[in-house]
Amino acid sequence: MNENYLKEFERWTSGPKRRREALSAEFAEHVREAEAAGELGSTLERLGPPRDAAKAFAAGHNLQPAPIGRRITAALVDFAIPILVLLGVSAAAALILAGDPGRVLAQLAGDVAAERDPDWTDAVQAIAAFTAALGMMWWVVGLTFMEWRAGRGPGKAMMGLRVVTEEGIAPTFGQVVIRRLTLVFSGPLQLIDWAFALFDPRRQRAVEKLAHTMVIQDDAAQPRPVAGMPRVGASNMA
């Protein structure tokens, strides 16, 4: 058995560890039987690249689409994280740079009471701008990267959700980029995109239909290991 092939197969499996182990175990058993029958070469040729093999062994199981409420909560969490960081860092910077946190707070309170602009320093504004830029990086690059590598960002992880392909394997980078195209949409278009999910049996937004991805309830993902299943990993394959 080609260890790299199994590693690549495992890389394309998605979901909780127990699901990925169950998929790998069935795949490894199939390949082992083919090898014992002297048919390994033709079997691997039939299976194609590891991603196609992962599709073959993952497809067919029911994928529970994530409820809209949990998806929206997850999106709000991901949206809120950089804003909270921005507020926290800016406030901390204001207090630290002023050298006298009590005076800064009193001054800001006084400015607010007098309806004057608070006396922000250039440095604080620069830090706020830098943090805002980091926030944009988070939304555009960070979340895209996390969904590509792990199938989810913090919001989806908190809500027990994951992005997978329609066959139930990990999405490609291109698929993640397409499903995150919503970022470039303005208000009404974004609403239309989400409205698709309300009426779609797989709860797919319009861009998710384009990307052939969906968001599922991670804890309900099949298959689950059954008694007697061997532990399989690229490191202990022959």
Partner: peptide
């Protein structure tokens, strides 16, 4: 048939 047809069918029947 190929694995890509057999295993999804098995999984559907199992579910």
């Amino acid at each position: 048939i190929k694995e890509g047809t057999l295993y999804p069918a098995l999984h559907r029947m199992e579910d």
